[in-house]
């Protein structure tokens, strides 16, 4: 059984009951994180990172990969944002950076999802997982609060709320929305979708996996195209 609140084994969900509810989308929650260091420049003493929300230039995750500990992932171009993990009802838990990357420049769309978070010890960036996007679904959970739902084909799901400066937050969220439309409807007409249209049971059967993998391979072949790296770099987001 999948617990209702859940993220990663390595970083267990820490919900702080006293953290204020997120009733004002424009305000950052205060003192919600005890064990997890601030991800912004202020809280990362000793780590040379900048917040990923900087509109241009490499984000936190990209810089982490560029730092050289991950050879194979170093050359990925990543579209990423900072989030906080929230419960279904909006209570704040961990800080998470989520990004998508293409494992090959020949891909027209990203095929990998990357998750990272600050370590418990010193708040320095740590890559937590790398997941083929074919096994992950992204949904808009709450548009007004800029929340996404990330669901793995195994049934694991969690909710992420965008963290970005108020001025750029809406724009940044719209890029994620565009991305998840494109991932879902690439090559099809753009049909508006909501979470309800995707039964939660969609991926609960393990036997579906092979079918899905086959479907995906077909799609992938259709997708692959030699694109001008300039235009494909961030998938036109």
């Amino acid at each position: 059984m999948v617990p209702a609140l859940f993220f990663f084994r390595g970083i267990s969900l820490r919900v702080h009951q006293r953290a204020g509810r997120w009733d004002d989308g424009r305000q950052e929650p205060k003192s919600a994180f005890r064990a997890v260091g601030e991800m912004g420049s202020s809280g990362l003493a000793g780590c040379s990172v900048v917040p990923a929300c900087a509109p241009e230039g490499p984000g936190w995750l990209q810089r982490h990969l560029l730092s050289g500990e991950f050879d194979q992932l170093r050359n990925f171009t990543i579209f990423e944002s900072n989030f906080v993990q929230v419960t279904r009802f909006g209570e704040v838990a961990n800080k998470v950076t989520m990004g998508v990357a293409a494992s090959s420049p020949a891909l027209e769309l990203p095929d990998l999802l990357l998750l990272a978070g600050p370590t418990k010890e010193d708040g320095c960036p740590q890559l937590l997982g790398l997941f083929p996007l074919q096994f992950v679904q992204l949904f808009i959970h709450d548009e007004s609060r800029q929340q996404l739902k990330v669901k793995f084909c195994t049934g694991r799901a969690f909710y992420l709320q965008l963290r970005a400066p108020a001025e750029t937050r809406a724009l940044e969220f719209s890029k994620w929305v565009r991305l998840l439309y494109r991932l879902r409807f690439h090559g099809q007409g753009a049909v508006p979708f909501t979470q309800e249209e995707w039964g939660d049971e969609d991926w609960d059967e393990e036997t579906d996996l092979e079918d899905q993998e086959r479907d995906w391979r077909d799609q992938l072949q259709a997708r692959e195209a030699r694109l001008d790296p300039q235009t494909s770099e961030l998938w036109g987001l």
Binding site: P3, G10, G129, L130, F131, P132, R156
Partner: peptide, 24 residues
Amino acid sequence: LLLQFTDKRFQPVHDLTIGVEFGA
């Protein structure tokens, strides 16, 4: 095994890994 090594915890539930999970 990874969780026990990095966090000294045991997870009784089998959460299938779908890609790569990292520990250090």
